[in-house]
């Protein structure tokens, strides 16, 4: 039984509304809103999505954890991303830019969380020592897959896998994310691509 701590993105706790209860069938799961610092220890698998991935990386750099999973995160808020966050209060704009071309899903966006983008801390990637799984998304127009690949490049013990989704990976492919988290918890150092 693994202890998961999950940091959601712009949708708040609702981002994990599939993954969290399914993980909780066999593990302990706690959800931490982006506004509070997570309580972690060396047994924790820390999972961050979107802006939660940035905060998770910051946390893991300062406080060692057992494993780290960064979903559609970024190394630092780019001007493009800040610009997006200013416009994403428009629901239709957010929806169309967050999902991939094949999806009919509607991601959650809480406007007050968008405002955090411009003031996020920058994680010190070189200080992250635990096994890390970086999950990027091919059609991510918001954070971009390139940013996920930079996280992969900057974290020494990291693996990279890419989903065929937009930024809203958890709305589009929650079961696929679940399968990656389950496999990571079982063997944090196994390459998820090789395993497939």
């Amino acid at each position: 039984m693994t202890e998961f701590v999950m940091l959601p993105g712009f949708g708040g706790a609702g981002d994990f509304d599939f993954v969290a209860p399914m993980l909780a069938r066999e593990h302990t799961v706690s959800l931490v809103e982006a506004t509070a610092p997570p309580a972690t220890d060396t047994d924790t698998i820390l999972v961050g999505y979107s802006l939660g991935a940035v905060l998770a990386a910051v946390q893991a750099a300062a406080h060692p954890v057992r494993g780290l999973v960064l979903i559609c995160g970024w190394t630092q808020s780019t001007p493009r991303l800040v610009d997006w966050s200013i416009h994403a209060g428009d629901e239709a704009f957010a929806r169309h830019t967050m999902v991939g071309p094949a999806s009919d899903r509607t991601p959650l966006v809480r406007p007050e969380l968008l405002a955090l983008v411009g003031s996020l801390p920058v994680p010190e990637l070189g200080a992250i020592a635990c096994p890390t799984l970086v999950i990027g998304a091919t059609y991510d127009l918001v954070a971009t897959a390139h940013q996920s690949r930079l996280l992969y490049g900057g974290i020494a013990g990291s693996r990279y896998v890419e989903l065929a989704t937009g930024h809203a990976a958890l709305a589009e492919r929650p079961a696929e994310v679940l399968s990656l988290l389950t496999a990571f918890a079982a063997q944090p150092s196994v390459d998820p691509v090789a395993q497939r």
Partner: peptide, 14 residues
């Protein structure tokens, strides 16, 4: 496949 997988949650635990 992954969309169908979500259907399992309806049958177990959620």
């Amino acid at each position: 496949f992954w969309a169908a997988e979500e259907g399992f949650a309806e049958r177990a635990g959620d």
